[in-house]
Design a binder for these strands. Structure first.
Lengths: 351, 351
DNA sequence: TTGTAGGCGTTATCAG
DNA sequence: CTGATAACGCCTACAA
C-alpha cells in the first residue's frame, strides 16, 4: 500500500489528447475508439455518431507512432531519388504521390545526387521505419545497400530503368533500348556516320546505358560506334559545345546524324546553331531524349524519345499497393514495362 | 503457478531483432544499447566497441516508431507542395532535403495540385505523426486547415510566397513585388502601354499576386492596368496564344511591353514569334518570371526575374533546425526574405 | 457489439 | 558508467 512516499516525476508526454480521453468523454472504452477509426462497421451507429461528434470537437487525431508500433505495420513508403530537382524525378515523385493518395501510405523522401553512399544512408535510415515498401531509382547499389535491401522484410521496387536479373520488382524501361531505337531510326534512313553525344558525367549511368544500346546497334549494322563526351556540366552548354565541335569538322566527314543523350543537350545545340551557321536537319540530323515541353516548338522541332516518368511513379505505387493488398506480399519480383515512345519530328529527317 | 493451461497466441510482432537481443548478445542491459545510439559518450569505450561489432553483425537498426513514441519527438517534417512535378517545387524539395540531410529529420511529402482540400487532408494526415515541423507552400488555407495549423504544437513555416500578417514563419519573397519590379523596369524605359499576360488558372494565385503588383505600379504611375488571360492550360501554348492575339492588334495601339506570368509563357511567345512575323524587342518588349535555363540562350535572350526556390527550401529547413535547436522553439514567427533578382536581357530593351 | 488484459520496441526517470 | 522500472499511445487476442 505504501508507495514509499517517493513520487516519480511524470515523464514527458506528447501532451496531446489520447484515445483514452476521447473514450472517457464518450463513455466507452478506448478500444471502441480504436475501432471507430480502423473498423467503423464494428461500432454501433449510435456510438459512432457520438464519437464523430467528440472527435470533431476535440480535434483528436490518432498517433501514427503509437498505432504503427502496436500494429507492426508502418504504412510508410521510402522513396530514394537521385536528383529531386530534375523534371524526371519530380514527375516520378508526383506519380508516386498520386498513386498513394488516399491509400493511407505516407511517402518518405530522400535525395542522393546520384551518390551511392548517400543512397546507402537513405536506405539505412528508412529501414528504421520498417517501411511497407521501398522505392529506388537505380539498380546498382553499394554492397552494404544491396545486403540491406535483400534482408528487408518489405517489397523493394526499382524504378526508371529496367535491367535483367535483379531480385526486386522493377518498373520502367531498358535505357539501352532507347539508344538502339534512335540508332536504328537513323540507320533505317541510310545514315552510316552516327554519333552519340553525352556529358562526361559518370554518375549519369542511364545516359551511358543509352549510349551502349546505340553502340550495339551500330556494331550490329557493321559500323563503328562514335561516342563523344562533353566536359561541360550544364546540359545546354554541353550541347552547344558539341555543336561547336561538329561545326569545325569537315562537312564530308561530319556525322550525318547525332543522338544527344538528353533533350537539353539537343536544345543547347539547336539554340546555338544559327551562330555557327549550322542548319538542322540539312547539315546533319539530330535527336534527343526526354520529350521536353519545348522540343515540339523549336525550329526545327526536335525528334526525341518520350519516357513516362509520371506513369512509372504511378505504376510503382500501384505495384506496392497491390502487393500490400494481395495475399502474397512476398510475390516473386516482377518487371513492369512502361515503354517509351519515339517521337519523330523535323530535326531527324535526313535528306 | 498454473497458467490456466490456456496459451494466448503471440501477438503479431515486427519479427525483427530488438534492442534487447543486441543487449543480451553484448551482456549489457538494453538501456545501454539505447545510449550507444543516442549518447555514445555515456557508454564506456569497451562496451561501445563490443556493441559496434554486434550491431554490425546482426544488422540491427533501432525502430523509429518505438523510439519516437517513447521520446515524444517524432523527428519528421511534413512538407506540403502544390505541384511536385514543377521545377519550382522540385527545387524547393531539393533544398529542404539538403537542409535536413544528416540532421536526423525525415521528410514526409504531400502534393496537392493547388487544391485547398487536398492540402487540408495532407495537414490532417501529418498531424497524426506529431511532426517536428510543418512546411507549407501557400498562405491561404481552408478554415479547418488554418485551425489545425494554429493549434499545432510544432513550428509552421510557409514558404515560396511571403505576405504580411501571418501567424507563422515565412520564407520566400513577396510575389507582388516581382510584378511591381517588372512594371517599373518598363516604366523606367518610358513605356506607357504595358500588359500583364497570364493564364486563366485561378489556382495559380501567385501569378495573380504578381499581376496585382504590376497593376499597383501601373496605377501609381497614373496608367491603366491591362491584364489579359489566356484560356490555354499549357503555358507554352498560352504564350503562343497571347502572341497571336498581340500580332492582330494594330501596331500603334499594341502594348509596348508585355510581362508574361512565367518564363514558359514568354518562351512560347518567342518560339511562335517568327511564324507571326513579330520580332522582339523591336515590335514590343517582353519579360518573364522564373529564369528557366533556356531563357538566357533564346533569341532574343529573355529578361526575367530569378527566384531561388532551392535557397528557399534550404532556408526553410534551416529555420526548422534552428527552432528545434534553440531554447525557444515557440519563438515568435519571423519572416525570412530570399529575394529575387531582375535579370535584364535583350528581350526587354525598348527602342 | 463491447470490453479486459497485456504487449509493441524504445526511452525517461531515478538509483546505484 | 550502468541498470531496474515504468511509461509512450495504441492495437491484438480473447472473452463476454
Amino acid at each position: 500500500m505504501d508507495n514509499a512516499g517517493r513520487v516519480r516525476a511524470p515523464r514527458r508526454k506528447l501532451g496531446i489528447r489520447t484515445i483514452h480521453d476521447v473514450a472517457a468523454l464518450a463513455g466507452v472504452s478506448s478500444i471502441t475508439v480504436s475501432r471507430y477509426f480502423n473498423a467503423p462497421e464494428k461500432v454501433s451507429p449510435v456510438v459512432r455518431d457520438r464519437l464523430r461528434q467528440i472527435i470533431l470537437e476535440t480535434g483528436y487525431v490518432p498517433s501514427q507512432m503509437a498505432g504503427r508500433l502496436a500494429s507492426a505495420e508502418s504504412r510508410v513508403v521510402g522513396a530514394v531519388m537521385q536528383n529531386t530537382g530534375s523534371s524526371t524525378f519530380a514527375d516520378l515523385v508526383k506519380g508516386m504521390g498520386d498513386g498513394f493518395e488516399g491509400s493511407g501510405l505516407q511517402l518518405l523522401l530522400a535525395n542522393t545526387e546520384y551518390l551511392q553512399d548517400r543512397e546507402e544512408r537513405a536506405v539505412r535510415a528508412f529501414m528504421g521505419w520498417h517501411p511497407s515498401a521501398l522505392i529506388l531509382t537505380r539498380d546498382d547499389h553499394t554492397p552494404e545497400s544491396e545486403a540491406l535491401l535483400r534482408a528487408a522484410r518489405c517489397p523493394i521496387v526499382e524504378t526508371w530503368g529496367v535491367v535483367p536479373g535483379r531480385p526486386f520488382h522493377q518498373v520502367g524501361f531498358p535505357h539501352a533500348d532507347v539508344g538502339k531505337e534512335l540508332a536504328r531510326h537513323f540507320l533505317a534512313q541510310g545514315a552510316r556516320r552516327i554519333r552519340f553525344a553525352l556529358r562526361q558525367a559518370p554518375q549519369d549511368f542511364r545516359a551511358q546505358q543509352r549510349a551502349q544500346g546505340y553502340a550495339q546497334a551500330m556494331v550490329a549494322a557493321g559500323l563503328t560506334p562514335d561516342v563523344q563526351a562533353s566536359s561541360c556540366d550544364d546540359e545546354l552548354d554541353a550541347g552547344a559545345q558539341m555543336l561547336e565541335r561538329l561545326s569545325r569538322e569537315p562537312p564530308d566527314q561530319r556525322p550525318q546524324a547525332v543522338i544527344f543523350a538528353s533533350d537539353n543537350m539537343a536544345v543547347g545545340a539547336i539554340l546555338a546553331a544559327p551562330g555557327r551557321g549550322i542548319r538542322f536537319p540539312q547539315d546533319f540530323a539530330i535527336a534527343g531524349f526526354g520529350d521536353a515541353p519545348i522540343a515540339a516548338r523549336l525550329h526545327p522541332a526536335l525528334t526525341t524519345v518520350r519516357p513516362r516518368p509520371y506513369d512509372i511513379g504511378l505504376k510503382a505505387a500501384q505495384v506496392v499497393l497491390s502487393l500490400k493488398a494481395g495475399r502474397d506480399p512476398e510475390a516473386p519480383p516482377a518487371t513492369h514495362l512502361v515503354p517509351c515512345e519515339l517521337i519523330v519530328r523535323e530535326s531527324s529527317r535526313l535528306a
